[in-house]
Amino acid sequence: MQDVRIRIGAAAVLSFSAFVSLWGAAAAFFWFFIFTPRLQSIRRLRLVIGASVMIAIISLLLQITNGSGYSYGIRIIVIILIGVWLAGEYHPGEFLHLGVWLAGDHLGFDVGLMAEMGMQSLISLLDDLDRIRIAYILKKIPLDITGIIPAGTLLVRMELIRARDNAELLAVRGYRDGGALQPGFKTSRLDIVAGLSVMPVFFIATLHFVNFLYFDSAFLKGLL
């Protein structure tokens, strides 16, 4: 999907739909299956597997304690997949265009710039993590609890140094607030089809959510 406006909007609606009901999650997964490159959009499978395992453990605990764990697990994993797709489709600079398009040259530019810097930091952080993992392998040091402390310290420190460098660079270039930018987007026919297709997903999710609130929720029945 080329147009960041449609991509962000679709991701927001799909995430909401997946969160509010299991049917919404199923519909959002169906949308994910049809309109994204699916697992090809996952750049770092290990991170996704790690997050999924963590969610699976929490789901199991919830299932044992109050019986809603499986639903929670499925809904959150669908949200993770949508998030991974969103991150995988990112192109440098597009959040700046989106920010200016949404909120203009001042607030929009600043918010867009922050989003861009955040994404760049995330990418650098993941690259650093790859290099650190290699360094640990070379030294034959296991990346366990004792190894994670210096690795974590290093990651935080490098991130702070990068933030300082970015701040200095912006100051040197005379940045105070806002900036001039003519936002531009490429919208394909598929983007429009995919964007419109989130509407049924939202409808399915809210229908079941409303149904749950009015007819199934013991909490609401108690209130009424």
Partner: peptide, 14 residues
Amino acid sequence: MLSLQFPEHHVTGM
């Protein structure tokens, strides 16, 4: 033995 470009990546000692 591989020496990475940025020496910080190799640091494991405090």
